[in-house]
Design a protein around this nucleic acid. Structure first.
Lengths: 171, 171
DNA sequence: CCGATGTAATTGACGTGTCAATATTGACGC
DNA sequence: GCGTCAATATTGACACGTCAATTACATCGG
């Protein structure tokens, strides 16, 4: 019903300077939010946002351990990036890498006690910071609008993943 | 009239899991957009987003030259970051650094012919890419809503810069 | 069993960003 | 002029990210 808007009309026009301004504002504002929250996280917990992301995935995994490639898939990182980062985290004692029992190529990444403790201690302050600098600024209506906008942007980026509106709702 | 919303009510509640989801979606989606457009820019023009940002500021400057610190202020970068990046750009012949005539401490950064040419060639493809992956996805109403949301977020980040709404409403 | 092919994970090189030192020079008071 | 302090710009050390090899093992056809 609105599927064809993005591929038929409005394709030939140039981008408005207003639209460009909003694009830059989006990039700049999100960058500033990331910097602010990242710096605060690092200062209060000695964990970088990347550390936090890895620890979050590990702490939610069964037995707090994951194959390296599953971890990469979970947080949508390139393997190489993860390898480098795990090396740094291992040096700091946040995680450990064991040889995998069922596949001698593989490694299993697991949370150390220190990693788990640091992550637990980081969660609440980080949530508070996100609330303070992001969530507290917006009205409920704005949250709805933003969620809608982000959904549209993601669908536009991944047209192949967009569900056909033909079938019914899952329960 | 709505100034006190952010400092009085709603301060004690915890953040909703919906709000957290939207936060993560905002960070992830903007990151993906940056990555996609950055990769495309780099591939088509051999300019990184950072290069582009620097060249944009320089090409809009009087005589296509700026004091290093003014350039840093214009694009809101730390001086050190700019120094490092200018060194890399100078190595590639995109810019040059001359001693400043009026202040022997300073340096003036200026666009080379090659830098100017590359930047001109990069502009149109980059605009097209932003339009394709961002602007074409949103309705006019969504642009308005997004601009509003970003304004609120920026005001929330910089309360000191927010104009007093003392005067009457604009029409 | 063996060789070709594929997959898991790591490594090295290099561009990028931040922070904490540096020089070096201007500006100001005396 | 001279000492002090601030401003300009750079540098070095290191964390982070990407890309292109590389290593080591699994898998499969024969």
């Amino acid at each position: 019903m609105r599927d064809d808007r993005s591929v038929s009309a409005a394709e030939r026009r140039r981008m408005t300077s207003d639209e460009l301004t909003i694009w830059r504002s989006l990039i700049d504002t999100t960058a500033e939010l990331r910097r602010l929250l990242g710096a605060q996280l690092l200062q209060e917990t000695s964990l970088s946002p990347a550390d936090y992301h890895v620890l979050l995935a590990l702490s939610e995994a069964r037995d707090r351990r994951l194959r390296s490639s599953e971890l990469a898939a979970t947080i949508d990182w390139e393997r190489s990036r993860l390898s480098h980062h795990l090396a740094r985290m291992e040096r700091r004692g946040l995680i450990r890498r064991d040889d995998c029992a069922t596949d001698n190529r593989g490694a299993e990444v697991l949370l150390t006690e220190e990693g788990a403790t640091l992550f637990r201690a980081a969660t609440a302050p980080h949530m508070r910071a996100v609330k303070k600098h992001f969530a507290d600024a917006l009205t409920p209506e704005q949250f709805v609008a933003l969620a809608d906008i982000l959904q549209v942007l993601r669908d536009h980026l991944h047209p192949e993943l967009t569900e056909k509106p033909a079938g019914g709702q899952p329960s």
